[in-house]
């Protein structure tokens, strides 16, 4: 259960960004999350709800945009969106030797701040 460590890191990044942009009440923190980041979205939202208490993000909702895994098929020469982390194979030609292009994201993207 490392989601609490991740939530604390998110709060630190978002607080600093909010301060740098001139302050106000942060209403929304948006996060991009890939399936290969090893972080469970529901567990993270739960941990964040506890961790934000008493911080400048106390009123800020954490919105998680969950992304798919995208992998490059060297045979079709195309990027493929994969449905499952359990089957890294090309949905068109069935090849297994795909190169993962994205899916590891764990990134604070934007804040919505009320002033």
């Amino acid at each position: 259960m490392h989601e609490l460590s991740v939530a604390l890191e998110i709060i630190s990044i978002a607080s600093e960004a909010a301060d740098d942009s001139g302050g106000g009440t942060v209403k929304v923190v948006r996060l991009r999350l890939g399936p290969l980041a090893g972080v469970d979205a529901q567990a993270l939202i739960g941990a964040y709800a506890i961790a934000r208490e008493g911080t400048m993000l106390a009123e800020a909702e954490l919105v998680v945009d969950e992304l798919p895994i995208v992998a490059r098929c060297p045979h079709c020469r195309r990027d493929r969106v994969l449905q499952s982390i359990l089957a890294i194979c090309c949905p068109e030609c069935g090849a297994l030797d795909l190169r993962v292009v994205s899916g590891r994201e764990l990134e604070v993207t934007t804040l919505e701040i009320e002033s």
């Binding site: 991740v6 890191e9 998110i10 990044i13 978002a14 960004a17 909010a18 942009s21 106000g24 009440t25 209403k27 996060l31 764990l106 990134e107 604070v108 993207t109 934007t110 804040l111 919505e112 701040i113 009320e114 002033s115």
Partner: peptide, 13 residues
């Protein structure tokens, strides 16, 4: 209240 959008784009780890 006015709501503004702030770009962060910082990797959490």
């Amino acid at each position: 209240p006015q709501t503004r959008l702030v770009e962060v784009r910082t990797r959490v780890l």
